[in-house]
Design a protein around this nucleic acid. Sequence first.
DNA 1: GTTTTGGCATAATGGTCATTATGTAAAAGC
DNA 2: GCTTTTACATAATGACCATTATGCCAAAAC
Lengths: 208, 208
Amino acid sequence: MTIMPKQVDHDFRRRSIASAAIRVIDAVGLDAARLTDVAREGEVTTGAVTHYFASKDAVIEAALAEVVRRILDGQAAVDDNVLAADDLIGALSSFLPVDEEARRDWRVWFAFWGRAIVNERLRALHRDYYAEISRRLTRTLTILQDAGRLPPGATAADVADAVIAVIDGLGVRATFEPDLWPPARQVRVLHLLLIPILSNPGGGETAR
Amino acid sequence: MTIMPKQVDHDFRRRSIASAAIRVIDAVGLDAARLTDVAREGEVTTGAVTHYFASKDAVIEAALAEVVRRILDGQAAVDDNVLAADDLIGALSSFLPVDEEARRDWRVWFAFWGRAIVNERLRALHRDYYAEISRRLTRTLTILQDAGRLPPGATAADVADAVIAVIDGLGVRATFEPDLWPPARQVRVLHLLLIPILSNPGGGETAR
DNA sequence: GTTTTGGCATAATGGTCATTATGTAAAAGC
DNA sequence: GCTTTTACATAATGACCATTATGCCAAAAC
């Protein structure tokens, strides 16, 4: 930390620009997002953007990393309360796109999928993200499994990935068709799918 | 059909170019796909492309329409065999990205999601597609419901959309992480999630 | 076989950005 | 207070590509 001139929180500025990029991406789409838009949204100039990022791809990559970071932070908060409240499905429902803010996160998340297909670095980020969220959920479910509350014959990992798949699948529909998927319906279908695999022999009803 | 010069199957050429666009989109991504690439892939020139489509957006839209058409054709074939074979889940597994060809369809399908967020016409196509597939599946499930084989208290529409969500969710993971999701695992998790809601009181095990 | 017209190839144009280059202010060190 | 170095702003460059323009060719009609 022995830098000489003009102290600036380098990391903070990068994050700030990445956040601006997220807002722009949500507004106009990933490929229509221009660096000048990002700069304006972040209340800086393109000079600042290029100063902090080597290329446009780097900006996009940072934006995805920021999105992932936020989602994982959210999950961490949820995880902490899951076992205590004994309401796993209720906690999981907080990931669904039930309000405009959550829908925005989902939209941006989707925007990256198309790129991740052809961009190796984004694909790696995507992979790492799912690996991490799957790992965490598997750990939580292992505790349930030890209590005999998972379907016999299913591994905790399979159940965790099944849960993730359900949330992703519902997230897609609800994000694109919010009027067909009011929060109540999202939660209803979530319960329909998850009650059978998350509240088996041993324990009582997990929710409702 | 009283056209004078040079008879050409207009519709066939459009589809041919749309198919070329699909291949290009899979190879390089939606936004990196150039019209010259599409032309080369379709073994025509850009002149032909612009002759058949008013703009690049029109080409992309036609490509999405072609993808949707293919998927729906696939579903129609499946639907016909579902009730006869009494193996709904087995039939549904044919939608999963279990081989490279299916993964390609899924990849291209994902590529459009990012655009559908900000492009009204693509969003409408996306919506219509899901409406149609949901409608068909609901119809099939209504028959099962009448036979008392759906969970009591669940509507056929909810079960249908739950099934679609599961397939979408598994599709995402398996497409991006094929090595973590060999076909056997996809099918296993599909059964884990669907057996409880598709083979309830009345009938026997639906698959396995 | 001549004319007509759509089907398309080829080439030209122009707009849109990402990137690069250059300049400036301001803070830190001495 | 002078120098140095970073942090940016502003302006210039240039590549890339969709779109447009032009023209040719081939088949149909007569």
